[in-house]
């Protein structure tokens, strides 16, 4: 195979695949969101902004807020747990580091849905947590943990924590330890070193990790279905419902596009942040 062919093959493959399975579908979803719903054909002409108007009805605005709030909470908890964890792991000798990171992704092999079922056995009235609390006499009555927003956040953190940790570890890997030593020699306290050196230098990892937790969290309908209570908590539930149950595709598509818009806004912030600390974003981001 000569130069031209190999090169052309790689380029054409890249463009065709991404065009056909990423660009065109996104455009189609955008288009669907401004079409009219139809029981027989899913979406038909004429174009209308109806679905978009409905998006702003208080019922749905409420779901938006609830979803954003739960996702934010999940992200913050993942960050608080994941940051020190990533720091410790990144500083370990290579062999240990590899093993721990691997152990981090092993649970994924057991499908996340199956693991979510197991969480029910942890949080239930007769579950492990309540058994421990009752056994130690902390509470007299079992706490209602399952079927609450708490359970949803517990499940989301559980499923998404590795997505926070992995970018952070690679970000810590690039942290130049001589900088920290120099600062220490110059008398900077741990807090000063943390605030002025460690955090700014690992910022790309923090942002990348946060995005990879925050965005998927809004869509995890099965976590809310199994662990959540009487209320629709996540955008994912609404979107799935519109596409597979109510079959109002334009409305479901409008929700998806709204989610894409939120994503685009956050990505834009991410690029700005990356530029500010003088790094490239996107595929060139070293922390990913």
């Amino acid at each position: 195979m000569n130069l031209l062919n190999f090169r052309r093959f790689a380029i054409v493959l890249t463009l065709v695949w991404l065009g056909l399975f990423v660009l065109v579908p996104h455009v189609l979803v955008l288009l669907t969101s401004v079409m009219s719903p139809d029981a027989q054909h899913l979406a038909v002409w004429p174009l209308t902004l109806n679905s978009w108007e409905r998006l702003f009805e208080p019922v749905y605005a409420e779901v938006f807020w609830r979803s954003l709030w739960l996702s934010t909470l999940t992200t913050v908890i993942c960050l608080v747990l994941g940051y020190p964890f990533a720091y410790i792991v990144a500083k370990l000798p290579n062999v240990w580091r590899g093993v721990l990171l691997f152990l981090m992704i092993v649970p994924f092999w057991t499908n996340s849905l199956i693991r979510t079922y197991a969480i029910k056995l942890i949080l239930g009235n007769k579950g492990l947590v309540n058994a421990a609390l009752l056994g130690t006499g902390v509470v007299d009555e079992p706490l209602q943990l399952l079927y609450t927003p708490f359970a949803v956040v517990f499940g989301l953190v559980y499923v998404l924590l590795p997505f926070m940790v992995l970018p952070l570890v690679s970000s810590f890997d690039k942290l130049d330890s001589t900088l920290l030593e120099a600062a220490q020699d110059l008398g900077a306290s741990f807090w000063a070193r943390f605030r002025l050196i460690i955090v700014p230098l690992t910022m790309p990892g923090i942002i990348a990790g946060s995005l990879m937790v925050f965005l998927p969290a809004m869509g995890m309908f099965y976590v809310a279905d199994l662990l959540g209570g009487a209320k629709n908590l996540l955008l994912g539930n609404i979107i799935k419902n519109q596409f597979l149950v109510v079959r109002d595709w334009p409305f479901g598509a409008a929700f998806s596009v709204a989610l894409i818009v939120i994503m685009a806004g956050l990505l834009w912030l991410y690029f700005l942040a990356n530029r500010r600390i003088n790094r490239q974003g996107g595929l060139d981001d070293e922390s990913l």
């Binding site: 208080p58 019922v59 749905y60 009487a230 209320k231 629709n232 609404i238 419902n241 109510v246």
Partner: peptide
């Protein structure tokens, strides 16, 4: 459709 609309409201807490 009527049921579905109410259903969604119910589950959103209205």
């Amino acid at each position: 459709k009527l049921y579905d609309g109410y259903w969604e409201k119910l589950k959103t807490g209205e």
